[in-house]
Design a binder for these strands. Sequence first.
RNA 1: GCCCCCAUCGUCUAGAGGACCAGGACGCAGCCCUUUCAAGGCUAAAACCGGGGUUCGAAUCCCCGUGGGGGCACCA
Length: 494
Amino acid sequence: MDLQPVRTRFAPSPTGRMHLGSARSALYPFLLARRTGGTFILRIEDTDRKRFVPGAEEELIEGLRWLGIEYDEGPDIGGPYGPYRQSERREIYHEHAWKLVERGHAFPCFCSPERLEQVRQQQIANKQNPRYDGACRDLDPDEARRRVRAGEKYVIRFKMPKEGSITVTDLLRGPITTDNAALDDSVLLKSDGMPTYHLAAMVDDHLMGITHVIRGSEWLPSLPLHAHVLRGFGWEEPVFVHLSVFLKPSGKGKMSKREAAEALKDGYSIFITDMKELGYIPEGVLNWIVLMGWGVPEDDIMTLDEMIARFDINHLTPSPAAVNFAKLDHFNGAHIRRLPTEDLAARIKPYFLREGLAVDDDLLLRIVPLIRERLVTLDDCLPFAAWFFRETVTPKPEELVAKGLTAAQSAEVARRACVILEALPEITPALAEPPLRAYVEQSGLSAGQVFGILRVAVTGQTVSPPLFESMEIVGKEKVLARLRAAIETLEAMK
RNA sequence: GCCCCCAUCGUCUAGAGGACCAGGACGCAGCCCUUUCAAGGCUAAAACCGGGGUUCGAAUCCCCGUGGGGGCACCA
């Protein structure tokens, strides 16, 4: 792979929440930039005031920060090519739109939206493709300029050649040739003075020195237009890479708002800030996303640094990918298991605090190794370990009764266990397991029956971290107290 | 309707004409381990969309068909 330093960008519009697609559109250019020792920038494409969503930019930035996708230049940190918010670059687009007019590649258009809509309806009725009818295309330049100066409302449209064709290359798909006749005189500068994407993105990518444009495949149909704009300015084309869309889990149809709501019902989300809330860690989310559209031969559990080392822009897949949440769980669990004890402890601590539990850090550090491989998401720490932080547990009486035994028999088991444990100087797996196993042996009961009673008595639940290690952490005194409480409960059941 | 893109196990993918009776991962099934739940180990089932070419040889190149996706705004 060519390792010349590149300049890439993530250019979202602040019109909604940051989702899977946004994250991947940021991740790939980021990886390419880091891989080549280049630069990655964040640019906000907020040229549509009607669709602007307050807080969207903040969520984007928060999402990127959480994921660990750091940009070198951006609206909040500045940089040598600013401003990085398109709404702050109006004059630049205005100037460039007119430059294109001067060069004969664009023209001012005074058609009203009403007339345009009427034309469109007419064309649809006649089964023609809806497109601009060229009314202002050949207006006398001086006349047009005079009307503009007189304050008449206008837009600037690209003057698409009527004949010929244009060939543009997408890195993943190869050269794509399109007849100019199939292209429209698209609007570049809107009547409110703001540019459309077609102008703004091309101007900014050029002015900001972007070498590789990595974006969603929804832009593929307008790639020929973009090439025309670029050539109209006489600019060199960047490398274009169009990413495939995400399909819904069934693979039938693309991910939609409705599908996002569907996912939420199953405890999943396509929104980045939700994932954090649901207990996913950035390492897991990143690993999941990076592999939708890219593949590695083996060892697909990777950290961000490992991704950077292995990333190859030439090997992305151009075909659409169905979202698979089971795989997200797998990657998340795998990365949780890789986390050092202190790190994992720090990440799960907030979940206990949120439950109103007083967390002792030393205790937490001893618990982590017991639950680490049981966590799929961080919040799984609660069902497995919240009871460690409670003074007492309240087992359900019926759960204290072992399968195949009566309450009285279960009480007897608890009593015998109590006697055995009481005789020990302290409870450790090494000290407690042999005598309890010996008891299992001579009692004729199964290990599951005996340990099951102890588990419920000590932890208050049927599913828990390993019993002996748990009892060691709880301590002899509390274990015995809980066993006695269980015996009482059992006896009261008679 | 018109234009464009895509096509390997259920899913994500490896594959750059011979190294492929197609490899990995998730999921699924079985077994092992086991005090619960996990994790881990082992095993299994599972794919080159169809048809034509090109070539000594095609998952890989070309054409057609089919299927899927995207786009046709003074939205991005």
